[in-house]
Amino acid sequence: MKYFDLHIHSAFSGGQSSLEQLASTAKELGYSGICFAEYFQSEVQLKKLKEEITKVKDKINIEIYLGFEARNPKELSKLVERRRMFDILLVQGGDLGMNRIACETPEVDIITHPENNRTDSGLNHVLVKSAAKNNVAIEVNFREILLGTKRTRSMIMKNIAQSIKLAKKYHAPVILCSGAISHFELRDPMILTSMANQLGMELNEAENSISKVPERIIKQSEERKSDKWIMPGVVVK
């Protein structure tokens, strides 16, 4: 089975490890592909990142995708305009407004840590329904659990479990990511699936969330890059 981690921050956007360190550790841990989720600055930065990724890809035999994480609506609209220039579009969740925009935008692939800095899960039945309709994957971020301690960690886990429960009910896709900013924060796929199992997912569902769901996102992104693609389900022949 192929495993993917689609939310990793490199030194390009506040991370602590280089692209090469992250890619080689991911390969050692058994991943087939990873995605560097960076913060968008300019098209020059985008081109530079693409060049760097090609270099690392050639050196370390692993699939590497380029993604951007939007932190506010302005950034999101900029990224939606340039959607075909990169692979994965992530939206930083946590703020209720951003959670809503992310779930309602079909161009978005992943909403990251919707429970970030909140006392609730950040998602309700309405948002999860629209995430399911627009095929926006709800992220289970391992770093949130890893860095939390005692009371905070238990709150985060409760909120993630709530999101998983809603996603299961409304058939919204769930994706497991490490959210790593350093190569020491990357985790074995088996660790991520086991943690998701502790949070209320069945083991086979958890495995799908780290293999089939990201694979579907990547496939969709490749289709989107073609000139024949108009919108989900509409292709010019």
Binding site: L146, I191, S194, Q198
Partner: peptide, 9 residues
């Protein structure tokens, strides 16, 4: 799965 998840922490 409990032990494996714990190792990840």
């Amino acid at each position: 799965s409990k032990v494996i998840a714990g190792l990840g922490l």
